[in-house]
Design a protein around this nucleic acid. Structure first.
Length: 629
RNA sequence: GCCGGAGUAGCUCAGCUGGUAGAGCAACGCUCUUGUAAAGCGUAGGCCGUGGGUUCGAGUCCCACCUCCGGCUCCA
């Protein structure tokens, strides 16, 4: 048989030859350094057979930054971890250990809980394995044989994996440790030049919170020690952009025990907040939305009608009116309010669509362990809107939302990932209705040429949704905007409009929040800019620094003129040296600083931009320049 | 909610096997009157997350709770 090499040359091999055989046929050095083979684009183990005519690429230890090459190294590292843990903790049950972005993990069921300090011991044991050296051997066996083998070893998780595994069963053995594994793996442990265990966490078996919780050990590994160091440095760098750290440093907000998950917005944070609100109002107006305001408290029956009581009551805050006539709950979303508003009068098809916008305070009693700075809060504010429309208006309205979202994310040079979430198990309405609403969203995405991934079963209980996701400084993914098409809630609230046919019709509702949560958006935005907000968002745009007391009046005058021109300007009083005040302005990431001393006048101002660029400008030239920022 | 960590001055942190709570920055005062990333000296600042316990004595040991951090699950 023949395979095709990357330079398009053909290589003749005996039938059933493997990637390793191909490497050997080319040269002994390549065979030694090979870690993985890509056959027709798909990665496979060096020991697995190639097929005739395949286009192959051999990856070696020199492809140290290739994601697939890193994955195989880390996958093998995970097996070393399992071997070490099995030796150190007799009676431990092993579950599953894949490579992940930036590393790997392995899940175990320990007889006794382990602690973080155990990681050192385990890491030392892995280093011992690396010093001794390990070779991986691959074998394929029958399902029954595999089951019998892992049953005999008393490894229930592996038995379950054999039961649910697709295709042939393969085993990998290194040292005296054999694992059920599809591979691929390294030939031996030599390429693993740097390995570090990075954390310990609980994780449910198969990601299911009703199943037992296992202990997950995280680690990472590289082909070179320098790469590990660089990675750790990147992690440190990322922590410096963390919005929780910058939020304190830049005096934007704080969180306190008095009201967990509810940010206290400081004056500077509020500037950013209000700029986003202004943006929302301005754009809503242009796009035909109308602003409304609906109550924060509703009786429980309202939430029963909307379906939220059934689905989310555990995450709602309940309260009683005095006299205890009835139970009320703080709204966790705006939908019921907007439904009731639409239903408060007779509606005509001529007035559709109604686009009700409201940026309102919502409260969600999130599970304790899930709160996270501004990114996951109990006090949440959405740039929310509900569009009530007829079936033939859905597509245009979805387009409107998608275009609006693109406009907003482009404005911040942020790139969101689109996801389509489809019908969940627990849902309202018939499959026919969901066929229609899901198709409408798919079609809108396709017509706009937007790439997206599908999250099967992840939709809201009342309808499918398009979500926009972004990653934070530490690489975690967060849902930002959402566009949801709902055929259910309007029915539950008995909403209708009078059609051209003089009959009542039920409207569709598009629930949409484009920035998503203001809190989360500001958190992500802070990390996106690493605190260096663009001029229009900067809490303080200009700081005037009089060199000495003698220049204080002139500095104040200049500051007032800049304020008159509409800028957020302030004076840095001459209580410290000029050097120190410039340093402070830099640390506060103020875009423009103006030093004012004996040499300055309206004709000649010493302007310093964040980062150090200096220029001498007249006041008129400065105002001109500021207008372009 | 679950697993693992952590809570000491406004911020960043030190405080060993139990023996009178510390530093730097910030704040405040005085001196200096400043020229593009840190002037000097001084003062003040603490229920050591909260509540219980052990002890002659607890920041330190034990229990419970709260909050935060890394994950898991969840995210209308």
């Amino acid at each position: 048989m023949k395979v095709v090499l990357p330079d398009n040359s053909e290589l003749e091999l005996p039938a059933g030859a493997t990637g390793l055989d191909a490497a050997r046929a080319i040269g002994p050095k390549l065979a030694e350094q090979a870690v993985l083979v890509r056959a027709d684009g798909a990665v496979q183990d060096l020991r697995a057979p190639l097929a005739d005519g395949q286009r192959i690429q051999l990856l070696t230890t020199r492809d140290k930054d290739d994601p697939d090459a890193l994955a195989v190294l880390r996958h093998s590292s995970a097996h070393l971890l399992a071997e070490a843990v099995r030796r150190l903790y007799p009676g431990v049950k092993i579950a599953i250990g894949p490579p992940i972005e930036n590393g790997f993990y392995y899940d175990f069921d320990f007889p006794e809980p382990i602690r973080e300090e155990d990681l050192e011991r385990i890491e030392a044991e892995i280093r011992k394995e690396l010093a001794e050296g390990r070779e991986w051997n691959r074998e394929e066996i029958s399902r029954e044989e595999a089951k019998a083998r892992f049953a005999a070893e008393d490894e229930p998780f592996k038995v379950e994996l054999v039961d649910t595994a697709e295709g042939d069963i393969s085993l990998y053995t290194q040292g005296d440790f054999t694992d059920l594994c599809r591979g691929p793996h390294l030939q031996n442990s030599k390429p693993i030049k740097a390995l570090k265990l990075t954390g310990l966490a609980g994780a449910y078996w198969r990601g299911d919170s009703t199943k037992p919780q296992l202990t997950r050990i995280y680690g990472t590994a590289f082909y070179a020690k320098d790469d590990l160091d660089a990675y750790l440095e990147r992690v440190e760098e990322a922590k410096r952009r963390d919005h929780r750290r910058l939020g304190v440093q830049l005096d934007l907000f704080h969180l306190a025990d008095n009201s967990p998950g509810s940010p206290f917005w400081h004056p500077k944070g509020m500037v950013i907040w209000n700029e986003l609100e202004d943006l929302r109002r301005r754009e809503n107006l242009r796009r035909g939305y109308v602003e409304v305001k609906t109550p924060l408290l509703y009786d429980v029956q309202t939430y029963v009608t909307s379906g939220h009581y059934e689905n989310y009551r555990d995450n709602m805050f309940f309260t009683h009116s005095h006299g205890s006539e009835g139970e009320f709950a703080l709204k966790p979303m705006n939908c019921p309010g907007h439904m009731l508003l639409f239903g408060s009068a007779l509606r005509s098809y001529r007035d559709l669509p109604f686009r009700y916008a409201e940026s309102s305070t919502l409260h969600r009693d999130e599970l304790g362990g899930t709160l996270h700075g501004l990114l996951r809060v109990k006090h949440i504010t959405q740039d929310d809107a509900h569009i009530f429309c007829a079936a033939d208006q859905i597509e245009d309205e979805i387009f409107g939302c998608l275009d609006y979202a693109s406009f907003l994310y482009d404005l911040f040079a942020m790139e969101a990932r689109f996801e389509l979430s489809t019908r969940p198990e627990k849902k309202l309405g018939s499959d026919e209705e969901w066929d229609f609403t899901e198709a409408a969203l798919r079609s809108a995405l396709a017509k706009r040429g937007i790439e997206y991934v599908v999250n099967e079963g992840d939709g809201a209980f009342y309808g499918p949704k398009i979500d926009l996701h972004m990653t934070d400084a530490l690489g975690r993914s967060w849902q930002m905007g959402t566009i949801q098409l709902d055929a259910q809630m309007p029915q539950n609230f008995g909403l209708t409009y009078m059609g051209a046919d003089n009959r009542e019709h039920t409207p569709y509702v598009i629930h949409r929040a484009l920035l998503g949560s203001l809190e989360r958006f500001i958190g992500i935005l802070t990390e996106h800019y690493a605190g260096d907000f663009p001029f229009w968002l900067a809490p303080v745009q200009i700081r005037v620094l009089p060199v000495g007391e003698a220049h204080a009046d002139a500095g104040s005058t200049l500051c007032l003129r800049l304020r008159d021109a509409g800028y957020r300007a302030e004076v840095g009083e001459p209580t410290d040296t000029i050097g120190k005040r410039i340093r402070a302005a830099e640390l506060e990431k103020i875009p423009v600083t103006i030093v004012y001393g004996d040499r300055e006048s309206d004709e000649s101002l010493a302007v310093r931009e964040r980062g150090g660029a200096q220029s001498t400008l007249s006041l008129a030239a400065l105002l001109e320049k500021l207008a372009t920022l």
